[in-house]
């Protein structure tokens, strides 16, 4: 019993070490901004996350696909309000943590959606700098 607990702990520690730039439990928006910033600084010394750049990114019409030209196409103009999937019409809960505390509470989930939605909407993977700006924007989007 004790042995299996030790082994589980050892495995968990090894797994966490895989995300070198992130603290072991990056489960808050603030941790994610810190993690992405740390990654971005390697290519852009002095980089600091900007909510304003994040806002521009969120609203920008990339026009890579007809149906999903921008983040806002599905998530709505206001990230603290509900959105609607452009193809299926399924309601999408607000992106801003102030309006929906479930957002940015799991790094694995956040990475999954960045991977999918960036390739879809932006036409490529997003950079760590873009992700830092994006989370910064949403974390400060407030409940207004």
């Amino acid at each position: 019993m004790f042995r299996s607990i030790v082994m589980t702990l050892a495995l968990a520690a090894g797994f966490a070490a895989g995300f070198a730039t992130f603290p072991a439990h990056a489960e808050t928006p603030r941790d994610m901004i810190a993690g992405y910033t740390q990654e971005a600084v390697r290519n852009q010394p002095g980089f600091a996350a900007s909510a304003e750049r994040g806002r521009t990114f969120f609203a920008r019409k990339w026009n890579v696909t007809d149906k999903m030209p921008s983040c806002a196409a599905c998530h709505g103009e206001r990230p603290n309000a509900e959105g609607s999937h452009v193809i299926t019409a399924k309601p999408i809960k607000p992106l801003a943590p102030a309006a929906n505390p479930e957002r940015f509470s799991s790094l694995a989930k956040v990475e999954k959606w960045f991977r999918r939605n960036c390739t879809e909407v932006v036409g490529r993977e997003c950079s760590a700098a873009e992700k830092a700006d994006f989370v910064q924007f949403l974390a400060t989007a407030g409940g207004a």
Partner: peptide
């Protein structure tokens, strides 16, 4: 996936 990227681990 019908025009969308729904890739999974």
């Amino acid at each position: 996936h019908f025009g969308a990227n729904a890739s999974l681990d």
